[in-house]
Design a protein around this nucleic acid. Structure first.
Length: 322
DNA sequence: TATGCGTGGTC
DNA sequence: TGACCAAGCAT
């Protein structure tokens, strides 16, 4: 181990100043979020974790509340057509997550008696649940000692321990070892530690402009000590304009509000008469037309949506899976 | 392992 | 203004 304080973490590993500082900070500063309530079910926590994949808390909150009221148990969602999950996903983005959450609910009913399973391995077997989400649910819903590593934790570790402005482009084995070595041995403290490092990354040690003056552990930050060296690489942004991704998004916006199947013709060009049934989709339809995508790309995008299970053909029109 | 996958806020 | 960014996953 090569980071400051590593020796103190060996052996019986008593709590370090780092742990104590983080614990106080978390107790005073952590946001009150419904999925952090002691009342929140494992299902509620699983739903929150999937919604929070690549989506900010403020946008998740209202949709999560709606889902929990609508589908308080996995079985409630499992009964629905998958398209309903997609519809009520709203504008959270990456709607395939809604599809996978629905599939996870079905799997929970069929293989786990309707209860969210409590081990990392079982969770990992659910659709849409990867290593991070399995660890997060095992820790936060079932109180287990799990090595939780998300983008926030990676960034905090990169700065605090490794002295880097940003973590590597993709998660490395060495980062997992580091995260494991930093976790308190005590189970409950490990859960709290994971939550607090994540929260620090979300509120203080942010990607763009970290609020180091508010940081409870700035005194021991390797990146600050090194004089805030800049990132050693420039992250490549995701293409958007003119991509299938943009087009799929625009089509899904139409399907979410359409109250009957939408003829592909309507998607391609403005119709003189949409008919009463699709009139509710006039606004997103107009937005789609404004993008002016080539017809062949539209066709390809629609195929993709159907292939991915986000849409289906019915009576010559496109709709959410019913 | 690199890539594709939505959306909207921020600077 | 456009590029970056947000509790990743699947292929």
């Amino acid at each position: 181990m090569s980071f400051p304080g590593a020796a103190k973490l060996a052996g019986t590993r008593p709590l370090t100043d780092l742990h104590l500082a983080m614990r106080s900070w978390f107790a005073e500063t952590a946001r009150v979020l419904p999925w952090r309530s002691p009342d929140c079910s494992p299902w509620g926590i699983l739903v929150s974790e999937v919604m929070l994949q690549q989506t900010p808390v403020v946008r998740v909150l209202p949709v999560w509340e709606d889902w929990m009221e609508r589908w308080p148990e996995p079985a409630d969602l499992a009964k629905e057509p998958s398209g309903e999950a997609v519809r009520h996903w709203g504008r959270l983005g990456y709607p395939r997550r809604a599809l996978r959450l629905h599939a996870a609910a079905v799997a929970i009913v069929e293989k786990h008696g309707g209860k969210v399973p409590g081990t990392h391995a079982e969770l990992l077997g659910l659709p849409g649940v990867g290593d991070y989400t399995a660890a997060a649910v095992a820790a936060f819903a079932f109180g287990q000692r799990e090595t939780v590593v998300d983008t926030n934790i990676r960034r905090v570790h990169a700065r605090l321990i490794s002295g880097l402005a940003l973590p590597a482009p993709s998660l490395t084995a060495s980062e997992m070892r580091l995260a494991d070595s930093l976790m308190p041995d005590d189970i409950e403290l490990s859960v709290r530690w994971n939550a607090s490092v994540m929260e620090l990354g979300a509120l203080v040690c942010t990607a763009r402009s970290p609020k180091c003056s508010d940081c409870p552990v700035s005194e021991s930050c390797a990146w600050l000590a090194a004089g805030e060296p800049p990132p050693t690489y420039t992250p490549k942004g995701q293409a958007w304009h003119g991509t299938d991704r943009q087009l799929r998004g625009a089509v899904m916006a139409v399907l979410r509000v359409a109250d009957s199947p939408v003829e592909p013709e309507w998607l391609e060009r403005p119709a003189t008469d949409l008919g009463f049934a699709a009139a509710g989709a006039a606004v997103p339809l107009a937005a789609l037309h404004r993008l002016n995508f080539p017809p062949e790309q539209l066709e390809r995008a629609l195929e993709g949506l159907v292939r991915d299970g986000l849409a289906e053909m019915h009576d010559g029109g496109l709709r959410l899976p019913a």
